[in-house]
Computed example of a mutant assay.
Amino acid sequence: MTTPEQRVEELGFTLPAPAKPAGSYLPVVRTGDLLYTSGQVPVIEGKLHQTGKLGVDLGVDEGKAQARICVLNALAALKAELGELSRVRRIVKVVVFVASAPDFTEQPQVANGASDLLAEVFGDQGKHARSAVGVASLPLDAPVEVELIAEVG
């Protein structure tokens, strides 16, 4: 059976080292069988991959790619907490914040970058409830931020 980590690699991605908190918070909090990740921005090797707003500086496809990077960072945080991603029973909820122009309305399409990757990695257990929210700005001028809730066993 293929592990989630192997599936990430099969999809052509690399699971990064977990990001260190940039403030007074924990990367992951567990309560019962649920793990909540803090918001993850599209950081690669300690640097923000892209900056700007959707509908001004970036298009939907670029936003989807940034959302995938955020998910990889969230998965790295989960793995650091659990030891292995095969302990994830289900991705329960995903919240995707999209820094966007006032007239940009394609936040759900940007969020599909995160949702589709989770479904590809975990199969049906990766399908989840979701919110896609447009915001005026995000930390470090990140275009996208993703947080998720996972049920673990």
Results as ranks from 00 to 15, higher is better:
residue 30 R to V: 04
residue 47 K to T: 08
residue 29 V to L: 10
residue 52 G to W: 05
residue 51 T to K: 13
residue 31 T to H: 12
residue 45 E to S: 12
residue 57 D to W: 06
residue 53 K to H: 14
residue 25 Y to L: 02
residue 61 D to V: 06
residue 40 Q to P: 01
residue 59 G to S: 13
residue 48 L to A: 04
residue 63 G to K: 05
residue 53 K to Y: 08
residue 31 T to I: 09
residue 44 I to H: 06
residue 52 G to V: 02
residue 65 A to S: 15
residue 55 G to L: 10
residue 53 K to G: 06
residue 56 V to M: 07
residue 57 D to C: 03
residue 40 Q to E: 12
residue 51 T to P: 02
residue 53 K to S: 14
residue 46 G to C: 14
residue 25 Y to W: 04
residue 58 L to Q: 06
residue 51 T to S: 10
residue 54 L to T: 06
residue 60 V to H: 06
residue 52 G to A: 00
residue 30 R to L: 01
residue 55 G to D: 12
residue 26 L to R: 14
residue 61 D to H: 01
residue 45 E to T: 11
residue 54 L to F: 08
residue 51 T to C: 04
residue 26 L to E: 14
residue 28 V to G: 06
residue 38 S to G: 01
residue 61 D to C: 03
residue 51 T to M: 08
residue 43 V to Q: 13
residue 49 H to Q: 13
residue 28 V to W: 10
residue 40 Q to M: 13
residue 43 V to W: 11
residue 39 G to D: 05
residue 35 L to K: 00
residue 49 H to T: 05
residue 28 V to D: 11
residue 61 D to E: 14
residue 38 S to H: 04
residue 30 R to M: 07
residue 59 G to D: 15
residue 57 D to R: 03
residue 24 S to V: 01
residue 52 G to L: 05
residue 32 G to W: 04
residue 30 R to I: 00
residue 32 G to T: 00
residue 56 V to E: 13
residue 38 S to E: 12
residue 38 S to Y: 00
residue 59 G to N: 15
residue 31 T to A: 13
residue 37 T to K: 09
residue 52 G to F: 02
residue 24 S to P: 00
residue 43 V to D: 09
residue 34 L to D: 03
residue 37 T to S: 12
residue 62 E to S: 10
residue 53 K to M: 15
residue 53 K to I: 04
